[in-house]
Design a protein around this nucleic acid. Structure first.
Lengths: 171, 171
DNA sequence: ATTTGACAGTTCAATTTTAGAACTATAGAA
DNA sequence: TTCTATAGTTCTAAAATTGAACTGTCAAAT
């Protein structure tokens, strides 16, 4: 599968993955949220090769996640700043951090704590329903086709083949 | 950077990325949440090469995100089921979908709608503070080192170098 | 006036990953 | 016996990534 194909898929997750779904891009975005703005800053913080960094930054700019803003003339220098589209990635970042905090910490505990300015407390992010405010879990959610739904060709194929499905003696 | 190194980093996000931070793994997990359980199911839904699929499934099992459960003897066949650790990835998945819904839809609209069983309504996921319940945004959150924090070697280096930082004439 | 250093890239060979396709193995069904 | 379904494994070619060096601009230091 080529990368650009992902963005064409009738699936919001696939499209998002097409934009930010690789290791380096996610780490670059982490740095963005930690206030890194310049090429050298990203490079030395991450140890990414300059080649890849240049490429990834270009892509993020092309996608409208970052904006390339001059901060100096002669020689021309630019900073990479999160757009609103980029800032909207925050829940994804926090969700990644929180899962790591929950399932990937060692004896030493969490590397970072997060303080909510509004209430002044250290917090965890919680994902809730926009309608009733209750916390969400996979089992309470049902999926329906939306207006942008299209049958994926392979699925159609599968469905057509969906014969009686012989179940053999269970384990 | 090697993949295993990511899991060693003093950063929950990097560790999470080490486990699920590549295109195919994320797409495989999408299928898991859509109730796909078997090798062929993943393969035909995604069009991933069988080689990579086998590898990714193995890794997810090793990481405790999926469990490999026999559903049939002779020939031995297994299903891949989300563990609790895997189910806990749900907020990440929803955050990815929601960003795509917000920023990557075409004229046709959303490919999928989500219904919350509790309240019966179509919803969007919202990330809120566990302490005060208010929605979160990047600017309201401050980061502090936690018990598991370690100075990254490169950062230390950077800090030492952090000289007055000559600013040249602005743009 | 020349050298040094910071910054933001670009280029290129070597290595690693991924894609695509074919192949293996088991066992029930036709 | 042959066909099909399932779950892989193996192999080569193509693509992506790494590591390291190189380019170019300008300010500051010598």
């Amino acid at each position: 599968m080529k990368w650009d194909e992902l963005e064409e898929e009738p699936c919001s997750m696939a499209r998002t993955i097409g934009v930010i779904g690789d290791r380096w891009t996610l780490l670059i975005l982490r740095e963005c949220f930690l206030r890194t703005r310049r090429f050298e800053g990203f490079q030395s913080a991450l140890g990414i090769t300059r080649h890849l960094l240049a490429e990834r930054l270009k892509k993020l700019v092309r996608q409208g996640v970052l904006r390339r803003i001059p901060y100096q003339e002669s020689p021309k220098r630019h900073e990479y700043i999160l757009t609103q589209k980029g800032l909207d990635l925050y829940p994804i970042m926090m969700a990644l951090v929180h899962w790591g905090d929950t399932h990937m910490v060692d004896e030493r505990g969490r590397p970072l704590l997060h303080e909510h300015r509004e209430c002044g407390k250290m917090f965890d992010p919680v994902m809730v329903c926009s309608e009733c405010g209750e916390p969400l879990s996979a089992k309470e959610v049902h999926v329906h086709p939306g207006p942008g739904a299209r049958p994926a060709p392979e699925r159609v194929l599968l469905d057509k083949k969906a014969k009686p499905k012989p179940r053999r003696k269970a384990a």
